[in-house]
Amino acid sequence: MDLVQALWLGLIQGLTEFLPISSSAHLILVPRLLGWPDQGLAFDVAVHVGTLLAVMLHFRRQVGPLVGDTLVSVWRRQPVGESRLGWALIIGTLPLVAGALILADAAEGVFRDPRVIAAATIGFGVLLWVAARRAGPRDEHSIGPGAALFIGAAQVLAIIPGTSRSGITMTAGLWLGLEATAAARFSFLLSMPAIALAGAWKALQLGAADGPVNWGVFGFGALVSGVSAYLCIRVFLALVARLGMTPFVIYRLVLGGVLLVMFSGAGSAAG
């Protein structure tokens, strides 16, 4: 991998990680169109670090109180400050851990079929459109344990490439009556443990793999991913408040159609 590939793939990862349009679908589509080889596990780890740092930077004023108040609530055995939201994030992460352990083999096998990715891109795009019509006035601080578990269970579906982790968690939040920007904010906060766990898992796999690591190129990819993700979060929150989810639904339908056309012969070719 050279710097040009690292630039484009880091940019794609950063921009699509937090938009409800599926980063995995884009990272499959772009190298295929440009004839690039698979970027490899080490690069995946690098760009995950970049996006994690980006979301932590954006919510830097909230992360400290979230962690601190949640810990204090354990000691006092009652809600404290931001602890309700902190516990919602913890509860929302638990299904992902269980789902990853159960579905790990499928995630690396059948789920990576391009036709599955295309179907997920289209199907969950339609579901996002339906859920957006149920949006209500609630904000993320109203999320209780049951709602957090529901959103967390939905997040497990993101193991299927093409689903979009941010997309499915926003969909679940909208379905429960959250306001669009509130659903997005909770999705972004929930991404911190999700991305950290995914990055740690990939790092463990990387540690067991052989071969040199081009730290310069991967560091550059992480930087591009982090900067683009930070800007994307800021722009998306402003954009969704004005336009809602419809533009992203339309984009998903078009992207899914493109993937279906590109990979329509994949099954017969494999047979």
Score class of each variant (00 low, 15 high):
residue 99 G to H: 02
residue 147 A to Q: 12
residue 253 L to F: 08
residue 250 I to D: 08
residue 175 W to V: 14
residue 9 L to P: 00
residue 131 A to H: 05
residue 36 W to H: 10
residue 47 V to K: 08
residue 39 Q to I: 06
residue 257 G to S: 06
residue 153 A to W: 05
residue 221 G to D: 01
residue 107 A to R: 06
residue 87 W to S: 01
residue 190 L to S: 02
residue 201 W to Y: 14
residue 18 F to Y: 04
residue 87 W to G: 01
residue 130 V to K: 06
residue 100 A to E: 04
residue 48 H to P: 04
residue 129 W to G: 00
residue 57 L to S: 15
residue 111 F to M: 08
residue 58 H to P: 10
residue 76 R to A: 12
residue 267 G to C: 13
residue 209 A to P: 00
residue 244 G to H: 10
residue 102 I to F: 13
residue 270 A to L: 14
residue 115 R to D: 07
residue 195 I to R: 07
residue 241 A to F: 02
residue 32 R to E: 15
residue 185 R to W: 01
residue 48 H to L: 09
residue 136 G to T: 13
residue 261 V to D: 02
residue 75 W to F: 11
residue 255 L to A: 03
residue 8 W to A: 11
residue 93 T to I: 03
residue 134 R to L: 09
residue 102 I to A: 12
residue 189 L to V: 09
residue 145 P to I: 08
residue 192 M to E: 05
residue 158 A to P: 11
residue 40 G to N: 07
residue 259 L to T: 09
residue 235 V to E: 14
residue 251 Y to C: 11
residue 29 L to Y: 12
residue 225 S to G: 12
residue 257 G to D: 00
residue 201 W to L: 15
residue 10 G to T: 08
residue 129 W to D: 08
residue 8 W to Y: 10
residue 251 Y to D: 11
residue 51 T to K: 02
residue 192 M to A: 15
residue 5 Q to F: 08
residue 179 E to L: 03
residue 118 A to D: 03
residue 244 G to C: 10
residue 178 L to V: 09
residue 34 L to T: 13
residue 265 G to M: 14
residue 114 P to R: 08
residue 130 V to T: 02
residue 2 D to G: 15
residue 255 L to I: 05
residue 147 A to E: 13
residue 110 V to C: 01
residue 209 A to G: 03
residue 4 V to N: 08
residue 51 T to W: 02
residue 32 R to V: 12
residue 61 R to I: 03
residue 153 A to C: 11
residue 107 A to W: 03
residue 5 Q to D: 11
residue 250 I to A: 14
residue 246 T to R: 15
residue 51 T to Y: 04
residue 257 G to V: 00
residue 151 I to V: 13
residue 152 G to N: 02
residue 19 L to D: 13
residue 229 A to R: 00
residue 105 D to L: 09
residue 162 G to W: 04
residue 200 A to F: 12
residue 180 A to E: 11
residue 253 L to N: 01
residue 47 V to Q: 09
residue 90 I to D: 02
residue 263 F to D: 08
residue 52 L to I: 06
residue 250 I to V: 15
residue 249 V to G: 07
residue 87 W to H: 02
residue 238 A to H: 13
residue 75 W to N: 03
residue 85 L to P: 15
residue 20 P to N: 00
residue 189 L to M: 06
residue 219 G to T: 00
residue 36 W to V: 03
residue 9 L to F: 07
residue 187 S to G: 06
residue 130 V to Q: 07
residue 46 A to T: 06
residue 150 F to M: 05
residue 92 G to Y: 00
residue 264 S to L: 13
residue 47 V to D: 03
residue 142 S to Q: 00
residue 103 L to M: 01
residue 15 L to G: 14
residue 117 I to L: 04
residue 68 G to P: 10
residue 74 V to F: 14
residue 93 T to L: 01
residue 210 D to E: 15
residue 261 V to T: 09
residue 61 R to C: 01
